[in-house]
């Protein structure tokens, strides 16, 4: 067992964890943040995507002990009150069906827009290539991310 200390969504967490515990299971079962999902166990589907020290990562590919000292953002943390513009855009553009991929998808989009505030369609598609959505066929998700980028751009200009 190992003691880990980390920050999730700006709040401090401290737990004793088994060395083999995956970060996704730590988030869901110890920190009780269940917005991050498990869809494949092999790093292919992206449902478990979170922001780890500023980068989008798949939390099923990381051990909880590796997150010791890290700063994480999960879907619960990108807009503590109300909705983030990406969340608003996903609703406006019908980018959600069953919702299971949605948090991971939004986190990948969030990481993209932090690095590239004005992505073109190809850049958006590349940024979410590691996130599988079985419902939408991606088109409305791509539209939503593009819409969000414009919305954020407009509000920053003001």
């Amino acid at each position: 067992m190992h003691r880990i200390k980390l920050k999730i969504n700006g709040k401090g967490f401290e737990h004793e964890v088994d060395s083999r515990l995956l970060l996704i299971h730590y988030l869901r079962e110890k920190a009780r943040l269940t917005g991050t999902h498990v869809g494949c166990d092999t790093g292919n589907c992206g449902a478990c995507t979170i922001i780890f020290n500023g980068k989008a990562v798949k939390s099923c590919m990381i051990l909880a002990v590796q997150a010791n000292g890290a700063e994480l953002t999960t879907i619960e943390g990108i807009a503590q009150n109300g909705f983030h513009p990406i969340q608003e855009s996903f609703m406006d553009k019908f980018a959600v069906q069953c919702g299971y991929c949605t948090p991971g998808m939004i986190m990948s989009a969030h990481a993209l827009l932090l690095e590239n505030p004005d992505p073109n369609e190809t850049e958006i598609r590349e940024a979410i290539e590691g996130n599988l959505c079985m419902c939408t066929g991606y088109q409305q998700i791509v539209e939503a991310i593009s819409h969000a980028a414009k919305k954020i751009g407009r509000s920053e200009k003001k």
């Binding site: 917005g35 909705f83 969340q87 949605t102």
Partner: peptide, 8 residues
């Protein structure tokens, strides 16, 4: 449905 789904 989406208000819950996009918030996780």
């Amino acid at each position: 449905e989406d208000i819950r789904l996009v918030k996780g």
